[in-house]
Design a binder for these strands. Structure first.
Lengths: 224, 224
DNA sequence: CGCTAGCTTGATGGTACTCAACCGCAGTGG
DNA sequence: CCACTGCGGTTGAGTACCATCAAGCTAGCG
């Protein structure tokens, strides 16, 4: 299973939500920055709609996209005093901020929740591990197919045939998968030629043959 | 700063240690298994001496080494109900077991420690991120140089010239760095030819030129 | 002595990167 | 209205790097 989100904790009815109501909601437009590497952590964020992109930029200009976070995902979790990477929006995106202070307050009052949070952190670690494996053990085609597959399975209940959003550009996909934009493009073209996917318009894609797609993503079941 | 250990929390005087005394200490010999993927988590372990190796084995026989854990490091942290990977010893290794129950007890009594633990989890996430970047953004030479560099800086206060332990075999290094044993060997040979390191005997290495080594780890173009 | 595991070295080929050109589209401004 | 421009994307040619396959070497050990 590909782990696209950094923390698809999917905390069922988010135990902290009741304490926050609808406060702390921010709306970001495309490329608006949620936080930057090195800034002091203020807490974490739950994505209400839209997509967030977490990434690191290095001295030599190389960029590594850590994760994409979709509706229901949590970002900014598991940092220390300072954020460890940049995070911005890929389009209009609504997030709910959960301040650190209120988190500490919750833990103090209900220590059993600490276990839940630690589990959530563990989930993030597990996702990073899966991603590590993807980055060093899979071919370009396997990575691209796996990426589209996880987008499709996450997007809707009935993924085959319908046009699905592909909110990130080729450069984002490339920097997430550890490839170049040319390699991403070539493999997507190849998937289209093989009638596995469609590319109806910029920013969208559609799955034509789901089983073939997961075949090409190959070797990522690890059902436990 | 390569992150070799999965959780170099370096919990200075480990706040839980006082509550455990010298109990819960286990001694493992080479290849003795500490825990396996899928087993129920019993807690976590602090390495007192020796080296632990955490890894996953896949259906196709491929192995990915997640991390090496040295003295002072913690493993088994941030898993859920079940361990997410296998863990065994590279040589004679002493660990102190910290049972989950006592961890919960501690958190319940001293909720402010929960924050520390979450930070530790964050550290593990950060290490995984660094490792991800290493695996997809660096050349074979950068990976090998960076690996040896972090071993050297971790090993002692005076790393230049002295023989340092290299407790893992080429296959372990290869599976950790996402390379083959041949590529690891070739690059170590090349580093020796460039007078950057020495390979006095099996299981040891020595740094001859520390600044050159870190140059090569960073991808500064020296000789191409 | 021969065996084996760990390691090195060589030859070869494939995958993905680099460099480069080009297309379609959306703004933009004369 | 139409050139001009920039961005995102695609395609092609050439190449570098690393995996693969295959020997051979060394040290330890029965």
């Amino acid at each position: 299973m590909h782990a696209i989100s950094s923390a698809s904790v999917n905390a069922t009815p988010a135990p902290w939500a009741s304490r926050l109501g609808s406060e702390g909601v921010q709306v970001l437009e495309s490329h608006d920055v949620l936080f930057r590497e090195g800034e002091e952590t203020t807490g974490f964020y739950e994505v209400l709609s839209g997509v967030l992109r977490s990434y690191k930029i290095f001295a030599d200009g190389r960029r590594q996209i850590i994760s994409f976070a979709f509706e229901g995902d949590i970002v900014g979790f598991g940092h220390g005093e300072d954020y460890r990477f940049d995070c911005d929006a890929l389009g209009t995106t609504r997030v709910r901020a959960v301040p650190k202070a209120s988190l500490l307050h919750i833990v103090r009052e209900r220590p059993e929740l600490a276990g839940k949070l630690l589990e959530a952190a563990g989930g993030e670690v597990a996702n990073m591990q899966d991603h590590s494996i993807l980055l060093c053990r899979k071919t370009a085609m396997e990575r691209v197919a796996g990426f589209l597959l996880s987008l499709a399975t996450r997007a809707s209940g009935k993924p085959v045939g319908t046009a699905l959003p592909l909110p990130m550009i080729r450069a984002d996909i490339a920097d997430y998968l550890g490839l170049t934009i040319e390699t991403v493009s070539r493999n997507m073209t190849r998937l289209r030629a093989l009638r596995v996917i469609d590319l109806p318009s910029r920013g969208t894609f559609a799955v034509r043959n789901l089983s073939k797609l997961s075949e090409m993503a190959e070797g990522e079941e690890t059902l436990h």
